[in-house]
Amino acid sequence: MTLEAYLLVGAALFSLGLIGALSHRNLIALLIGIELMMNAASLNLMAFNRFVVTDPTTGQIFVLIIIGLAAAEVAIFLSIILRIYRAYHDIDAEKLTKLSG
């Protein structure tokens, strides 16, 4: 598979993630969408790492770090979801519009 193909897959994945992030009301679904978007970036990095870059360590480390940060991110986000859930027993993103003035 060529670089271009990988990139297109990445773009598709990103777009799917976007749909997830934009269309869902559930906070967890939003999170999933965003994770897909980040993974699309990872795929791109890996593909470039393979086809373009002479020293392949950078891309890999980049992806590893992304994975690590995603873990941290998810941890925080899920705890926030739990906090909201405690308060509301609901995790509907649209209910959150109550805040905006």
Binding site: F14, L18, L22, R25, Y85, H89, D90, I91
Partner: peptide
């Protein structure tokens, strides 16, 4: 948080359409 989340949320065609449109344009 399952108590609430298993109830299938109402499908919102407008929102989905918007999301798909965004994604398609972007893609």
């Amino acid at each position: 948080s399952i108590a609430m989340s298993i109830r299938p949320p109402n499908p919102d065609a407008r929102k989905l359409g918007f999301a798909i449109a965004c994604a398609v344009i972007f893609f």
